[in-house]
Design a protein around this nucleic acid. Sequence first.
DNA 1: GCAAATAGTGTAAAATCGACACATAAAATT
DNA 2: AATTTTATGTGTCGATTTTACACTATTTGC
Lengths: 278, 278
Amino acid sequence: MTLLLSQLDLGTFLRIFIKRYLFKKFSFRILALMEVPKNAELTTDIDRQLNFYQKEDQVLLAVDCIIFGFDKTNLKILLIKRNFEPEKGKWSLIGGFLKKNENLDQAATRVLNALTGLSDIYMEQLYTYSKVDRDPGQRTISVSYFALIDVDSYQFDGIQIESARWFDLNEAPNLIFDHEEMIQKAIARLRRRAMTMPIGFELLPEKFTMRQLQNLYESILGKKLDKRNFINKVNSLDVLVKLNEKDMTVSRKGAYLFVFDKEKYEKKVTEDGFSFKL
Amino acid sequence: MTLLLSQLDLGTFLRIFIKRYLFKKFSFRILALMEVPKNAELTTDIDRQLNFYQKEDQVLLAVDCIIFGFDKTNLKILLIKRNFEPEKGKWSLIGGFLKKNENLDQAATRVLNALTGLSDIYMEQLYTYSKVDRDPGQRTISVSYFALIDVDSYQFDGIQIESARWFDLNEAPNLIFDHEEMIQKAIARLRRRAMTMPIGFELLPEKFTMRQLQNLYESILGKKLDKRNFINKVNSLDVLVKLNEKDMTVSRKGAYLFVFDKEKYEKKVTEDGFSFKL
DNA sequence: GCAAATAGTGTAAAATCGACACATAAAATT
DNA sequence: AATTTTATGTGTCGATTTTACACTATTTGC
């Protein structure tokens, strides 16, 4: 136990000690404070150099993840029942707060991993929501991310959270805050991306049938597609490999399985300026 | 001068006193500190009730505006020379900090207005930048916005800032922080938007010639377009009105002026599901 | 009145899109 | 063993959209 004595003003104090507080095993308890006029001279020049923006407001920064999944038939979204205030017990997107020593992508990855156990997931930043009263708890700005996972690749053991559930897009419950708005924007982005980038494969198992791929696109776009036109188009892109293997679970005849050839795709992009368009 | 005595740990202390520090006339000087193990119990319940997310880190939130302009020939970007630390004297985007009582759109509008005097400007949120060390001054997260204005509609009186300047896109100076990355992303967004939304007109004066419109699109896309194909396409959209008035400043023959019929456009969108595509 | 400079105009070939129907393979049933 | 069932797999043609391309018209300055 150490006793420190200081004449620094609060701003300076924070800047100097906050890192120790965050990264070391010890924190500090304040034993004595002196209130002084705020416009009093800063005591040190070091102060100026350490902190330029001292008079600005700070806010909490959250990340919220819109997690899309595909169960070989329908596009789904993963929601949780909040087990903390405010709005405890209501359905919500999976979220968390940005920490000092990470960037937003890392925060989103961490939050998703903490709640699903999954890593190496496709994620993309979407939009930042900042309505003054969006969170009744405290002024919070939230950055939304969307994530794509194959529902079947991860079995819910209920280990991570007992209150998480997949919902069909149109039967999702009412959500807290502005989370429904976030989902709408995420769907729009997903639609655009699916047409111009090979991200659909993130939602499918490694091996998939043409029918599954078409179902996926129909779910994403919310409309039926013509089977032959779809297959012709996909084939013309020339980034799938047809396996000598059939999925016999759905039809008597069986359907050939395909895999997405990511290396071939990337080679085409860099060498031929190829761009994925469906 | 008041003397306070407290047993709060640092986290609690911050939450309770930071508002006074920020909003009132007084600040505090710390006279004595005690270092204690970090996992020590919180002292008050009041604490919990005051703030749901009390253990979370707060950050500064900035907005940075990528302001595009068009001088009837070239696409330009507005930059300022910073007159404050850090990086004083270097070129930078126009930016500022989010305040407690406004949302991000309002902050962006305020910042742009403060520095150019312009209001009613097309703005759109782009992306949020959060690298831990992006701003050496302090942990700052920045939300970028892009704005579109007609260079000629606003004469720089040098009133607002003497150090602001329009730069051609490819002759912009080195910028601070991650501002160049922001600009690259903004250009990409502008290209996409220009092809699918009638935002190009924000960059032109109310009356413009076909050639100016084509020059604008060529600047945005960074490539030459075929004159006849361009005009045919624009005409097929049927949202411009040809005036009985010519711009005689460029050619001997003179070129007819056009205006964008916003009402017609919006009517087509809502009534016929029309979508602008160039 | 002639030179200069930019405006303005149409067509044909190529590529892409969208609609559309039937034979096939294998399992399940009889 | 024959039949029924069910989803798979495959190609063409017309419509639409995109691209390439060249000459005349108008007015001012000389």
